[in-house]
């Protein structure tokens, strides 16, 4: 990983979990849903109840990697007038109150529109750790590579079950902080089981030299967290948290986070591969 001489907030957060003998928990929330204040409150609740990293999504008009629950939330946020610049308020609101690393998950066009350098500067100022970019591959990321180096931000690219060995290597090399392993071929949304493909993707990323690999898509229960924590440095939960926020507000996010975090530590019968 291209992180030797740069401090990575995401890597530091994952390493703190690792020092406690467990994997890291990463929780996703869409900015501005149901309001900017609620996103901040829910983010703080996440951090105080077991999440090590927080992923704040920017609502976008064309979220091709998101399933219905997250689409509904981000569509509502946009309908209520969410503006992209408010994501920096959310990031600052959470980082000022917690030690969690806060990343922004965004489709690429809103960043292009603001200007990659300008967006990066403001994210760094807000205390953000970096970006997760679901529709930006390293091949197209020259501008982001430069800006993330300039402002010391993590660049979390995705790898998938369909990634070839060559693409896996290229993506691992381009990433900083961690590598986001997509567990299944599909979009976000809770699923009853995590596919076996996830374990293979994580192994391939490790083989390509990734020190920190986190698994997302379809993870919604403590049992699934436990299953993934056995082989990955981090577990990402999105849709389940958004549904909890929708149905039960910040209290429900707090309760679900507590429950999910019980799956992070290895138990008898489960092994970790050197975490």
């Amino acid at each position: 990983m291209n992180s030797a001489e740069m401090t990575s907030k995401s890597a530091a957060a994952i390493d703190r979990a690792r020092a406690q003998g467990r994997s890291a928990l990463i929780g996703y929330l869409p900015a501005g849903y149901p309001s900017v204040e609620d996103t901040i409150a829910a983010g703080i609740a996440l951090a105080e109840n077991g999440a090590d990293l927080i992923e704040i999504g920017i609502p976008y008009s064309d979220p091709v990697m998101d399933g219905q629950v997250i689409q509904a939330a981000t569509t509502e946020a946009l309908a209520k007038g969410f503006h992209v610049k408010q994501v920096f308020d959310v990031v600052a609101g959470i980082t000022s109150k917690t030690d969690a690393a806060v990343l922004v998950m965004t489709y690429w066009n809103p960043v292009v529109r603001m200007g990659v350098d300008e967006f990066s500067r403001r994210l760094a100022e807000a205390g953000g750790a970096g970006l997760i970019t679901p529709d930006l591959i390293p091949d197209e990321a020259a501008e982001w590579m430069a800006a993330s180096d300039k402002y010391g931000l993590d660049r979390v690219f995705l790898v998938a079950p369909s990634s070839t060995a060559e693409r896996m290597q290229r993506t691992v090399d381009a990433s900083r902080g961690f590598v986001y392993a997509v567990s299944i071929m599909g979009v976000t949304g809770a699923r009853t089981s995590v596919s076996t493909a996830a374990k293979d993707v994580v192994a391939a990323a490790h083989d390509a030299g990734a020190e920190r690999v986190c698994v997302g898509l379809g993870v919604s229960t403590a049992d699934q967290v436990r299953e993934i924590a056995a082989y990955a440095e981090g577990v990402i939960v999105g849709t389940a948290l958004v549904a909890a926020l929708r149905d039960g507000g910040v209290d429900a996010v707090e309760a679900l986070t507590k429950d999910l975090s019980t799956g992070l530590a290895p138990e008898a019968g489960h092994t970790t591969d050197g975490a």
Binding site: P134, I137, E140, A160, S162, S163, M185
Partner: peptide, 10 residues
């Protein structure tokens, strides 16, 4: 270019 999810690049 190809501004697409990695899942579809293959």
């Amino acid at each position: 270019g190809r501004w697409m999810p990695e899942s579809l690049i293959a």
